[in-house]
Write a protein that binds this DNA or RNA. Sequence first.
DNA 1: CTGAAAGCGCTAACAC
DNA 2: GTGTTAGCGCTTTCAG
Lengths: 325, 325
Amino acid sequence: MDRPAKRATSADVARVAGVSRTTVSFVLNDKPGQTIPEETRRRVLEAARSLEYQPHSSARALAAGRSDIVLLSLPAMPIGAGISRFIEELATALAEHGLTLVTHLSGAQARPLPAVCATVNASAVIGFEPFDRDTTRALHSAGAAFVFPFRTDDAPAMRSVGRLQAEYLIGRGHRRIGYAMPLNRGLHAMAEDRLYGATEACAEAGIDPPVVASTDLETATAARAVTEWTARSVTGVCAFNDETAIAVLAGMRTHGLAAPDDLAVIGMDDIPTARLTVPPLTTFSFALAELSKRQAATIVAGLTGSAPRIPSEDVGPRLVERASA
Amino acid sequence: MDRPAKRATSADVARVAGVSRTTVSFVLNDKPGQTIPEETRRRVLEAARSLEYQPHSSARALAAGRSDIVLLSLPAMPIGAGISRFIEELATALAEHGLTLVTHLSGAQARPLPAVCATVNASAVIGFEPFDRDTTRALHSAGAAFVFPFRTDDAPAMRSVGRLQAEYLIGRGHRRIGYAMPLNRGLHAMAEDRLYGATEACAEAGIDPPVVASTDLETATAARAVTEWTARSVTGVCAFNDETAIAVLAGMRTHGLAAPDDLAVIGMDDIPTARLTVPPLTTFSFALAELSKRQAATIVAGLTGSAPRIPSEDVGPRLVERASA
DNA sequence: CTGAAAGCGCTAACAC
DNA sequence: GTGTTAGCGCTTTCAG
């Protein structure tokens, strides 16, 4: 906590550079269609730098009618390394186009998303959760030109997670699959999706659907889940994510069971600690970089009105084979 | 992604309510010192609601010279349940005073914090990390009236982390302490702080300062750190955080060493998976709820100019004793 | 108690 | 090519 400092305005820059504010605006925004002499341009840039000029975003937003802000809404769930990285990549990709990403953790009592959207004047909002119709409308009337809820059909990658895990296990000869659901409510919707994918894979292989058991991040509940699986002769389990998988491993340990021989377990996300377990966790990692590039491309296209130049690289999860399955 | 909708302005509200924009502004902001008749007030509120009026925050910020936005900067680290809750509480406490919290995950390549601050026009920024002098200045000139870095003297809790870890170990008879630093650059400043606390504790106990070794979240580097500690007859190590501690545990395993007998290790944070390791991790957890109430009180006081009504409950880390140390 | 008027700092037509 | 001008939507003296 310290004293504020006087901020330079575009008029100051103009004065120092000996040009008009318009010119300053043009060069600072690289306005296309204008032909500014190199010399003038240089002077303006120089003046801006020497004054540590930072455009006042509110004024800019007010005048231009849109802000450079993209709001990401995260539901109340733990932000693991996977999501962190996604966010980071997204922020980077957006930043390349001059867009700034801020996130809102939509906790229980916190302000409703539309209010936050209005307050920060976001011109696009991305949800890591689905939005209902009302929310979407409210978001628009709060000033967001674009809203991208997290749609499962948007991200083929999402549902396929469960599918890939199950297919891997089936490919290794397992005929009785278990699924470890997180007890955490915030994760439920996502987990259902993944489970659905696993169920499809089982159906296609002509085996029974996964035996699902829930667990939180405690050895005790995980141990109970393990009991259920072994009782029903499950030999391989797909865990919702790596943390859940780590819990399963811990639960197995209390029964004296070891992966992968007694029970194979496969995680999802490839969190940093996944390689530190015993045995190291076999898992999948999202091609987060690709996914976020896509999101960013879609958003940038929407915001600038340009053609959605969406990279079509493979975006599916990649297997990280270690020893647990 | 959908079509935008026309937004009502304060002029619309004024027209519908049959008053001037000034009056609208007064009643909507509860301007003190004004005496608006109940009837007028009601009409304005009614009109605002029927039009779903939402003040345009940029315009407001531009005119008023300050925004209602508080920016929280999170370093590149996993956001566990603990921190999530801290954020939620903070957002709630701030919302009670009309302030909106948004967060910025300061990843590696993302935009620098001051730029984000300028873009969202935050009037206060809180860091979950310490800020150096330059950053603080940049933040101010980016428009933040108040910046609250995570200061050790603000939060006795912070530096005391290292101290508490070391004291615990010393209390258990260890005379040769190790400190596990994260290789991750983003965590460095915070880690130095904690190490400093540990060093103090050692000095006070009359033993040598901690033997510091760095590691990232890989078994190999952790194993090297372990080698160093054992070579220098360290018997207990304080890890920067739980993840680092988990890495140390993994590193020990490759040497056939087991905690706590061969080497005691103590973490920090009490992340969910801390209880799932072998052996379960002894660690400390912050009293996040209290901490956030304080932060909110301080900020509100600063922003409103009122007296800082700060609750003085205990905010220090609490020991979570498990088996690793 | 309410309204008129002057900006906040910036962008974008439109002239010079 | 560059400057003039008119707002964007809101707050806030200052009259009435």
